[in-house]
Each structure stands twice: as C-alpha cells, then as structure tokens.
Design a protein around this nucleic acid. Structure first.
Lengths: 208, 208
DNA sequence: GTGACAATAGCTCCTTTGGGGTATTTTTTC
DNA sequence: GAAAAAATACCCCAAAGGAGCTATTGTCAC
C-alpha cells in the first residue's frame, strides 16, 4: 500500500485490548484499522489477502505464537511490516521476534499517541523500540572479553576464511611453524581442540 | 555518578558544534557539561579522572577515531555510557560503534530537546537510536535464505561443537560415510571447501 | 511417472591437522 | 630492570579431513 492512509491489522487475543486498540487506531486520522484477529491462525489465513501495511502482533497468543505467525506471514507478505506489541521483554522473545522478521518491538504500556508515531515510523522504514529494548539488543553486540593477542586474532580470521597453515603463513609473512604455534595457543586459550570449535566460539564471543 | 545531575563530556573536533553542544547541555537543568575535547587522545587521557556519566562522541575525529576512543575508554570507565553523535550512518560505523561499547547512536541532526531526552534515557539504562538506525540493526538479525536440509544443518551444528566424523556419526546414528557425504554436500552448497569456512559462513548467514 | 532432491552407504588416495615437545627474541607491564 | 606475555621457529607422528568417485532408497512436485 502506498496511499497516505496507513492500513493496520491487529492480532491480539484479549478482547478488550484488541477492541480498544482498534478503536484508537481506526479513529485516528491517517490510520485505518478494519481488521483485527484474536489468534495467529485466522491472521495467517486472512492477512495475505488484505491491503495491510503494518501488523500489530501480540506474542502470547493461544495456540500458535505471534512470533511464529510473524515468521509465516513475512514469507507471504513481503511489503508488510510487523510490530510486536507485548508485555514480554525477555531477551529470547526479542531476538526470536527480530529473527522472525519483526520491524519494531514495543511494550504494551506504550501510550496511544506514541504508538501512532511508532506505526508511522515503521511505515517510513524505521524500527521503533523502547530504549530499554534497544539496550538489550545493543548489549548483544558487546565483546565480553578477548583473551587472544592481535596476531592470534589475525590468524584465526584467516582460518575462518578457509586458509590452511601454509596459506596463512604466506599471507602474514611467517613460517608455517609459527602459524601452527599460534593456532595451538588459540586452541588452548579458547579451550577447544580443533578449528571448527575455535571458529564457532570466536564468533559467538565476537572475537572475529 | 549517581547524583540527580547528569554529567556530560563531549568529544567533537568541530569547534562550533562542540561549543554549541556544550552550551545547550550545560545550560539545561539537570545536566552539566564542564568538559569538552577536540580529539580522541585528550579525551582518553582526561575522561577516566573526571566525574562523567555520559560521553557524546563524534566518530570522525582527526587522528584516532571516536570508535577507537570509545573502545579504549570503556575499558577504563566501566560506568560511563557512550552516545555516538555523528553524520555517518553506514552499517560499518554503526556495528563497529556498538561492538566498541556505545550505548546509543544518534545522528547530528537530532534536535537539542530530543538530545537531552536521549541522554537521560542512556543514563537510565536505555539505548536511544533513531528508528532508521534501529532498522539497520534489526535487519542484521534477519535470515537471508537457507540452502541446507535439516540433516545437514544438524550435522553442521555438531561440527561447530568440535565433533569429528565419527563423533557425529555416533550422535545421529549414521554411518561415518554418510556423515562425510553430508559434509561434502554442505561444502558444495555453501561454496566452501573446508570446515572452518563452512562454519564461518553458516554463522554469518545464521544457518546455525 | 519422471525428475529432483534428500538421505543413506561405501571406496581410494593424498593432504592437512593437532598433540607432544623445545627454544630464542621482542614487547609489554609492573 | 625483572617478570610476563607475545611472537617467532623448528621437530616427529598418528589421526582426521577432503576430493573424487559410485550407488540405492524414499519422497515430493509437476
């Protein structure tokens, strides 16, 4: 949809919240909300055929979760944006939602005026979230602590590109023996005993 | 610092912007800004000894970058929050800043009133960012597309834990030959030719 | 019902890897 | 200025890995 009115759909099991939300959104100028669903299943079957720009999705639904619904709907509706609107703010819910394709993540205590602003932001290509939610996401980027030396990190990065001893040695102008020593030290520092696990751990800890 | 006044430091090479920012922040009730630096080096030496709660950091500084300065200062000042305040909004700058330890990422066109709100948010444990910046971060969580079958994914996950052919075979009740075939197919699908690169690519593409 | 893909299993041959050592030099840190 | 950490280099050897093959079975879509 590219008209000036933003078309919203709501998926929320609590009747009162759903109806209140719909009234608020549909009653605001520039917004329309003609469709609201009490469960994931009905939303998944109906939304693909509706002219919807933004879906407000509750996570905790009876039966299929709002996260799963988002995952499935995104496959079919490439141009629809999803805002999770929920009471759950645990890390797992947040990251699963984002991986499922949600564009925004707001808590249910967001006030109506802000909610409308956020819907507009999503429609304009933004990703609104409360700054508390944002902090959790940002923290996931932080490096916990890096036991590797610069040289070791350099070697490990090359290994992750598929280089073998000899290739790495040539790349960094070292003897292959030295490269081997570095790798042994890397394994020892990361408490692993092969390349695969070293790379896995290094990435998970954001060392490379 | 835990007093009711939030103490700010500014690192910004443009004299006019730096002075204007300092005037705005220091002139607002609840905020104090007695320290402003034109480069990374002077900030790095001074800030650890100052009573600072939040640092506004420009990225593009002469000499050492604001990202590097953030990295170094965070090691010394565990309780200080950093907000990147910059014109650069490319993905690399954003992710490097977050990895370096920034808590917020705002563009320089943010208006003064909003800036103060955001400083407050950071100080309260939030992570303010424009919804455009947030979208980029969120997009980094998306799964692009998964060429691997379920079995292959399962095998690759085990490899990433450091399992060898035999271990994997025992774990999933298969012949080691079959495991080897799966691995070869994985390599072929991911266009790699060894374990290290396969795991690297798989993680980067969020396949495992 | 044919073609594509996934899952299974096997073979050979050669290269690479990782574990066990030892040892010197440079750089950093206290 | 001593101690610690990092970077450098080398040895042996058994185990693991990867390339290149073939082949059967089952499932799913068109």
């Amino acid at each position: 949809m590219s008209s000036s009115i933003i078309h919203i759909a709501i998926v929320e099991d609590d009747n009162e919240i759903r109806q209140t939300l719909q009234l608020i959104v549909d009653g605001s100028s520039g917004f329309a909300c003609k469709h609201a669903f009490p469960d994931a299943e009905s939303a998944i079957t109906s939304i693909p055929d509706l002219p919807v720009d933004v879906v407000l999705m509750d996570i905790d639904l009876p039966g299929k979760s709002g996260i799963q619904a988002t995952r499935e709907l995104r496959r079919k509706c490439k141009s629809v944006d999803f805002i999770m609107l929920t009471v759950q703010s645990d890390d797992d819910s947040i990251f699963e939602s984002l991986c499922a394709g949600a564009s925004g993540y707001l808590l249910k205590d967001t006030n109506p005026a802000e909610l409308l602003v956020h819907i507009k932001e999503v429609n304009d290509g933004g990703s609104p979230m409360s700054s508390q939610i944002a902090r959790r996401i940002i923290n996931s980027f932080r490096i916990i602590d890096n036991p590797l030396s610069e040289r070791e990190t350099e070697v490990l990065k090359l290994l992750s590109q598929g280089f073998n001893y000899k290739d790495v040695a040539e790349e960094v102008f070292l003897s292959p023996h030295t490269v081997k020593t570095h790798i042994k030290n890397i394994y020892s520092k990361l408490h692993v005993n092969n390349r695969a696990e070293a790379i896995y751990k290094a990435i998970k800890q954001k060392l490379i």
